[in-house]
Computed example of a mutant assay.
Amino acid sequence: MGMRGVMFDAGGVLFGPIGGRWNPRFDFERIVARHYPGVGSFAAAIAVGQRFLDKSSTTPPRGEYHRVMLDVLGVEPSASLLAELDAPLAEPVVEVYPDVRPALERLRLGGVRMSVVSDSWAGLVTLLESLDLAGYFDGFAISEVLGCNKPDPRMYAEGQRLLGLPADECLFIDDDPLLVQAARELGHQGLTLDRGASLSSEGVIASLDALAVP
């Protein structure tokens, strides 16, 4: 069957983090130090926070994630600190990869339906709106909202439902090959996006420029 819809992962596919780190946000240390001068061991706290995320079956609330790291730092957070850590920034926190907008525009003009399937917090939709990307998509399957992470079949099923297409007409794109394999096992088409690759190969693309419109 041909491809009539595309389900995109978000982070690592549509955009990357400014500062090179996904979690916590690049201003975490700056905000905490302003509220609690002299606090240290940020590297240890961030490592514990990452283990907390890795062990979670879904994307936990950001407040819980921040509390785990702050506990390692010996900080009993105030409401104002938690609010500031979770508040949107006026400055960008991510940057859109240069191949993304041309690819999305090309797919839209070709009549291809698109959704986002992402292990992320619910604020992803607001972020995509701020990046002027949200309008390309028919909907968003987000782990914090659905209560599960990929490769849980419910994530892929919701992305497919948003497209209103059979599984074998939906292409799933992610930068994690294991998550792409899970999509294939559910009957979807799948491609791994490896931006570090010099060339595309079987099942792997080095850029969204390689996406062909049916």
Rank of each mutant, 00 (worst) to 15 (best):
L133C: 03
E95W: 13
S118R: 06
R51L: 10
Y97H: 12
L85Y: 00
K150H: 03
V75P: 11
Y136P: 02
V117Q: 10
M114P: 06
I173Y: 06
E105K: 12
L70M: 11
D174I: 11
A122G: 12
P102Q: 03
G164P: 06
P102F: 07
F52N: 03
S57K: 15
G63W: 02
P61D: 03
H66Y: 08
L165D: 13
D132P: 02
A90Q: 13
D132M: 07
G111L: 08
G49Q: 00
T59L: 05
L89C: 13
C148P: 15
G159H: 08
D99V: 08
L124D: 07
P98G: 03
E95L: 14
L165T: 02
E105W: 14
M69S: 07
G110N: 01
L81Q: 00
L85H: 03
V96S: 07
S118K: 00
D86R: 00
L73E: 01
A122H: 15
M69Y: 02
S57W: 15
D138T: 05
E169S: 09
G63D: 03
L109P: 04
A90K: 14
T58W: 15
P98H: 13
G147Q: 01
A157Q: 12
A157H: 14
V72N: 02
P60R: 10
R108N: 09
L82I: 01
P77H: 00
E91K: 10
D138M: 13
L107F: 13
S56A: 11
F140S: 00
G111R: 05
L131H: 09
R51V: 08
E64G: 01
C148W: 09
P153K: 06
M114E: 06
Q160W: 04
G110S: 05
Y136K: 09
Y97P: 14
Q50A: 12
L81W: 00
L73F: 07
V145N: 05
R161S: 14
R51I: 14
